[in-house]
Design a protein around this nucleic acid. Structure first.
Length: 413
RNA sequence: GCGAUCGUAGCUCAGUUGGUUAGAGCGCCGGUUUGUGGUACCGGAGGUCGGGGGUUCGAGACCCCUCGAUCGCCCCA
C-alpha cells in the first residue's frame, strides 16, 4: 500500500465476508421478527439539528458534551450525526403528527456515530437495530417489546443471555431515590473512588454499578428503589413482570441497573450474557447485547405533549460477536469454459441457472489447468463443462435435477 | 479524556545482545508432472520494516513525537 493511500477513519469498519453475512443475518432476522409483532418499518435521517439530541439527552451527559459528531453546515445550522435512534424518532413522531397512529410501533436499523475510544464491540460508526412503542402508557407495551427482544435473540441463536430487569419508578419515585442515594453516598464521600465522587454530582445512580472496590463496599447497604416506589409504580412493575412470566420470558431482577439519561422512567432492562457463557467470552467487557427502557419524559423535552413510550436498541456488531461467523451461500454450479469459443453458450447457461434459482459462477480465465484448479478451490457441488461446441457434461455428486432443468430451459427472450 | 500491549510482503508471522543485497508459509502470476479436477515440483512478481525526527561508523531493532490497531478505565449498544 502506498503511503499516500488514505486510511479508513478511526473506529470505522469495512465489513466483509463471513462477518458481512452475519450482519445480513441479524438484519434479516430482525425484519422477520418485527413483522410478527406488527412493528412498522421506518427510516430516519442520519443527521438532525444538534438540539434534537442536546435537549433530549441533556446537555451535561457525556454523549452530548464530548461524544457527538457535530458540525456547522453551509447554512450555518449546527447539525449532528445521530448518536442514538430514540431522539430522532421522537422528533419524527412530533413533527409528522404521528400521534394519529398512536400507539405506534416502529422498527428501524442503521448506523450511529459516537466519538469514543474504539475497543472490543465499540466503534465510532456502529450499527443498531431498534424498536419503539410510542404513545402507550400500559405495562402491556413493555411486555410486548421485551417478548419481541427475547424472541429475536433466540431466533438469532444466541444462548446464555438473560434479561436483567429493573424499575426506576415514576418521576417522583425516581427523584426520591436519587435524593436518598445522594444522601447515603454523600456521608461517605471521602471513601469513594474519584470517579464516584464525580458521579455523586452528575449521575449518582451510576455509582451503583461501579467496578471500583472502594465503592463496592458501600453498595450492598445503599438505598433500594423499592423503598421509594409509589403504589402506582410498584403496580406497574408487577404488571410487567407477571406479563413476562405469562409470555415465558425469563428475567432476573437487577436492582442496580440504571439509566444515565434523565428521561427514563419505570422499566429499564438489558440482556446480558451469563458469566462464563460463550457470549460473555465473545463480548469482553462490553457485555450488554440489547438494552432499553421506558422514556415517558422524552417528548416533553422536545416541546411535545407528554407521551409515554418504551423502546430498545441492540448493537449489531455485538450481536455478530455473539452468534459468530456465517457462511456465504454455497456454490451449486460452476460453469467451466474450456475453450473461449464456448463463452456465449456459457453465458446462456449461467442466465438460465440463475433464473432457476441456482447459485452459479463462471470460470473462464487462465490456462485450462488453472481454470480447473481455481474452480475446484471454490468448492462447487457441480461443474458444468463447456467446450468449443457448447455444454457437454456435468460432474459432481448429489441431486442435479434443478440444474438439469435450468440447462434445458428455453432461453429467455 | 486516561492506561497497557502492539504496527515487518495481499494474509499469518520470523528476524538472535544494533552489523553486508530483510526471510518463511499461505495467496497471486507463469511453467513442469498428472488421467483436461483437489497432488508434487520449478520459477516469478510483490516490502522506502505505519509516518516523522533523533542517537550511532551503522537502526526493522534503541530514544522522542505522531497516526493506527487491540484490550481495559470513563461512558455506553
Amino acid at each position: 500500500m502506498s503511503k499516500n493511500t488514505p486510511k479508513a477513519i478511526r473506529g470505522t469498519q469495512d465489513i466483509f465476508g463471513a462477518d458481512a453475512e452475519a450482519f445480513a443475518f441479524v438484519v434479516e432476522t430482525f425484519e422477520r421478527v418485527r413483522r410478527l409483532y406488527r412493528f412498522r418499518r421506518a427510516e430516519f435521517p442520519v443527521f438532525e439539528k444538534t438540539e434534537v439530541f442536546a435537549r433530549s439527552l441533556g446537555e451535561t451527559t457525556d454523549v452530548v458534551s464530548k461524544e457527538m459528531y457535530s458540525f456547522e453546515d453551509r447554512g450555518g445550522d449546527s447539525l449532528t450525526l445521530r448518536p442514538e435512534f430514540t431522539a430522532g424518532i421522537a422528533r419524527a413522531y412530533l413533527t409528522n403528527g404521528w400521534q394519529q397512529h398512536a400507539p405506534l410501533k416502529v422498527a428501524t436499523h442503521g448506523p450511529l456515530f459516537r466519538y469514543e475510544r474504539p475497543q472490543k464491540g465499540r466503534y465510532r460508526q456502529f450499527h443498531q437495530i431498534d424498536a419503539e412503542i410510542i404513545g402507550a402508557a400500559e405495562p402491556q407495551a413493555d411486555v410486548e417489546l421485551l417478548a419481541m427482544a427475547d424472541q429475536l435473540l433466540r431466533e438469532l441463536g444466541i444462548e446464555g443471555v438473560t434479561l436483567h430487569l429493573n424499575t426506576l419508578g415514576d418521576a417522583d419515585s425516581r427523584e426520591a431515590w436519587r435524593a436518598g442515594l445522594i444522601d447515603y453516598f454523600g456521608k461517605v464521600r471521602g471513601d469513594l473512588s474519584e470517579d464516584s465522587q464525580e458521579r455523586l454530582e452528575k449521575n449518582p445512580l451510576r455509582i451503583l454499578d461501579s467496578k471500583d472496590p472502594r465503592d463496592k463496599a458501600f453498595l450492598s447497604d445503599a438505598p433500594k428503589i423499592d423503598a421509594y416506589l409509589s403504589d402506582e409504580a410498584l403496580a406497574f412493575f408487577e404488571s410487567v413482570t407477571s406479563g413476562l412470566d405469562a409470555a415465558s420470558v425469563k428475567w432476573t431482577r437487577a436492582e442496580s441497573l440504571v439509566r444515565g439519561l434523565d428521561y427514563y422512567r419505570h422499566t429499564a432492562f438489558e440482556f446480558i450474557p451469563d458469566e462464563g457463557s460463550a457470549a460473555a467470552d465473545a463480548l469482553g467487557t462490553q457485555s450488554t447485547v440489547l438494552g432499553g427502557g421506558r422514556y415517558d419524559g422524552l417528548m416533553e423535552s422536545l416541546g411535545g405533549p407528554a407521551t409515554p413510550a418504551v423502546g430498545w436498541a441492540a448493537g449489531i456488531e455485538r450481536l455478530i460477536m455473539s452468534i459468530g461467523e456465517r457462511e456465504e451461500a454455497p456454490l451449486e454450479a460452476m460453469v467451466l469454459v474450456e475453450h473461449d469459443a464456448g463463452l456465449a453458450e456459457a453465458n446462456r447457461l449461467l442466465a438460465n441457472l440463475r433464473a432457476g434459482g441456482v447459485v452459479a459462477e463462471i470460470m473462464a480465465t487462465g490456462s485450462l489447468k488453472k481454470r480447473y484448479d481455481k474452480a475446484v478451490k471454490q468448492g462447487p457441488k457441480h461443474i458444468l463443462r463447456v467446450n468449443e461446441t457448447g455444454y457437454y457434461s456435468i460432474s459432481g455428486e448429489g441431486d442435479t435435477s434443478r440444474i438439469v432443468a435450468a440447462i434445458n430451459a428455453e432461453t429467455s427472450p
